[in-house]
């Protein structure tokens, strides 16, 4: 058989006597249309993805009580947000939950990742499966499970300690943090395990060869090199915690209102320029986080 290659970027083929190729025109027509369709699909996809968000941002500057009727430009909705105590306190609650749950989950997730990648132990496969479950199980199911669990556990504690009803333990920020750690451990562990797996083990051997014991090897060689992975995991955990609505919704209680909980309450009722403004701010926060994660990833490469 004669070996023939189509020239790059063109469909014209050298003609051969012993090999059949489909007629050139049909092929190139198909390809041209295929390329156009791909391009159109791309344009459509990005309009679909971005138009709603852009509309939101634009109308957050709309000087009208009626959310969707353009009356002119204003910053007043942002001003109102800043003087809204409920929103400000919800925002700080969100930050507290995200920071604390990220720190705990990153620590535990990294430790788990090292144990999974560097040790062999009984039931390792089983534990591996359990570790993936919080990522796969729909958040609503995890939410109601934690709701049931905290209700029972707090009830037991309150009964055991014979706490009067006014000082009894209730769900709140603490239960939310516990819940966020529970799903974030898995996400951190998955990210860190990837960077441990990509890690060149000869580097650890080299350190030991040069006289470093296991602990020094870990501290001086392994840890600095998987740091981008750990930070990436932490950033993912932070974002997930900051964005989480469903699990927070089922595990929170009095005094435990986070920003998504507060925003959900408003969204559910109506549309308004204030919500557009909060949404725009949350959007900005997300963009900052994506840029941070991308920068980290570039550094890892």
């Amino acid at each position: 058989m004669t070996v023939q290659h189509a020239q790059e970027g063109s469909l014209t083929r050298p003609t051969t006597t012993d090999t059949y190729y489909p007629p050139q025109k049909a092929g190139s027509l198909l390809l041209t249309w295929g390329k156009r369709l791909l391009w159109a699909n791309m344009i459509f996809s990005f309009i679909f993805l971005y138009a709603p968000i852009l509309v939101l941002v634009v109308f957050s500057f709309n000087d009208s009580r009626f959310a969707a009727k353009w009356e002119g430009f204003t910053f007043k909705w942002y001003g109102e947000l800043l003087s809204n105590d409920a929103i400000i306190s919800a925002f700080w609650n969100s930050i507290v939950v995200a920071v604390l749950s990220t720190i705990i989950a990153t620590l535990l997730g990294t430790m788990t990742a090292i144990a999974m990648e560097r040790f062999r132990f009984p039931f390792r496969k089983t534990y591996d499966g359990i570790l993936y479950l919080p990522v796969i199980v729909p958040d609503i199911v995890m939410g109601i499970a934690l709701l049931a669990f905290f209700a029972l556990a707090l009830d037991w504690i309150n009964t055991a300690l014979a706490l009067p009803s006014d000082s009894a333990l209730r769900p709140g920020l603490t239960t939310v943090i516990i819940a966020h750690v529970a799903f974030n451990i898995s996400f951190v562990a998955i990210v860190v395990r990837t960077s441990l797996r990509d890690f060149n083990k000869a580097l650890e051997e080299a350190a030991q060869d040069l006289g470093a014991n296991e602990w020094i090897t870990f501290r001086r060689v392994t840890l600095p090199l998987i740091m981008p992975g750990i930070l990436g995991g932490a950033l993912l955990a932070f974002t997930l915690s900051l964005d989480d609505f469903v699990i927070t919704f089922f595990t929170t209680g009095p005094g435990g209102t986070t920003l998504p909980i507060d925003v959900f309450g408003r969204i559910r009722r109506t549309i308004s320029p204030e919500i557009n403004a909060i949404s725009t701010l949350m959007l900005m926060m997300s963009i900052v986080l994506v840029i941070a994660s991308q920068t980290l990833q570039r550094r890892r490469e």
Partner: peptide, 29 residues
């Protein structure tokens, strides 16, 4: 264990610590 042997290795793909300078690499031992 390797860190208790007075033996050193030159690895196939060098295994130089990428996060350290050349001087830090050489001085590690």
């Amino acid at each position: 264990p390797p860190f208790k042997r007075n033996v050193n290795t030159v690895f196939q793909n060098y295994a130089l610590f990428p996060h350290m300078t050349v001087g830090e690499n050489v001085g590690f031992g």
